[in-house]
Nucleic acid binder design. Sequence first.
DNA 1: TAGGTTTTGTTGATTACTCAACAAATCGTT
DNA 2: AACGATTTGTTGAGTAATCAACAAAACCTA
Lengths: 182, 182
Amino acid sequence: MPKTDRRIAKSQSAIKSAVLALMSLKNFDNITIQDIADEANLNRGTIYLHYTDKYDLLDKMIEEHIHELRVLCHVASDMTFQEGNYIWYEYFEKHKLFFSTMLDSKGAPYFRKQFLELVVEEFGVEVNTSTGKNKGLHEDVILQFFAAATVGAVEWWFKNGMPVSARIMAEQTGILLDRNFD
Amino acid sequence: MPKTDRRIAKSQSAIKSAVLALMSLKNFDNITIQDIADEANLNRGTIYLHYTDKYDLLDKMIEEHIHELRVLCHVASDMTFQEGNYIWYEYFEKHKLFFSTMLDSKGAPYFRKQFLELVVEEFGVEVNTSTGKNKGLHEDVILQFFAAATVGAVEWWFKNGMPVSARIMAEQTGILLDRNFD
DNA sequence: TAGGTTTTGTTGATTACTCAACAAATCGTT
DNA sequence: AACGATTTGTTGAGTAATCAACAAAACCTA
């Protein structure tokens, strides 16, 4: 694999940092491409060399967070859902600005989709329908059921301004998941 | 004047910052071009697009400081030498790493020359050989005399590890200058 | 909803940067 | 003084970024 050109790495890094910086100042939907270019100190046209529009840019940023969450899943593979969830929710809280913006604005139409796919995939290794409490149930049904539940909880949490702590969210959704997997 | 290309500004800025960062870690003479390129996160060849070698790079950086010092001179044009000197020595102290490196290593062969030229030029507006205590003396002689004295004092200060405070240097050289100009 | 203003996305010509490769110069040991 | 290793400065071909200019879309707001 040919390593990426230094200029590409620098431009993309500057662009993403600029978006994050601007998101702390104003709503994503009110950020213009020119704003991003100014903040990143590069030409507006350069942004279009890497992303089709600002929503595509945001999607790419989402992909990176999805990837990080997947890594955290593997770190937590030996833990209970309660314990593992807390790692996730810590990550959410750390990037609260990012995630709440993602889930609030119309700016990230595919976030929920990508997020759900991730959860389905990661829950997949945990489910067992040949023995235990889920014996005889349909694997896909269980997966989609609890994945949607998990994503929905996170979505609710952010859309409502995180009314409870990350620890509470992790614990309670963890209890509900641990109760249903073995 | 056509404004400089954004890429040029960014590259030069990164290169200069890299040199300053590296100078705090090791002697300038031990810094390689590759070190600078790595620190600045750009290709080694890019440095040669802007500077002929690392000493030229250093000279350009010097020029910028010389320019700053000239600006400070104009700010201090209404003050006594004692007062004005303190502004200068504060600047020296603020950039102590830079200046001590300049005056210590063989890396900046022209620093003293440029510095002296600046002092001669700036003292020029102060000297008066038609009336007062210097009446009848040769202007160039006075200028070269006290400019060399001033530069020599600064040089001594840095080469000997700044054994006295900036305030003391400013006060004492200020007294000596105020005593000889009117 | 008609008006002017801002933002968008694209274009083409130009310039700066990248990367790998090279010979020559310098450095550091022995 | 001779050795290998590092650093230097340069080259050429390829790519990314810049800038100005443009029409079309989206946006106020009166």
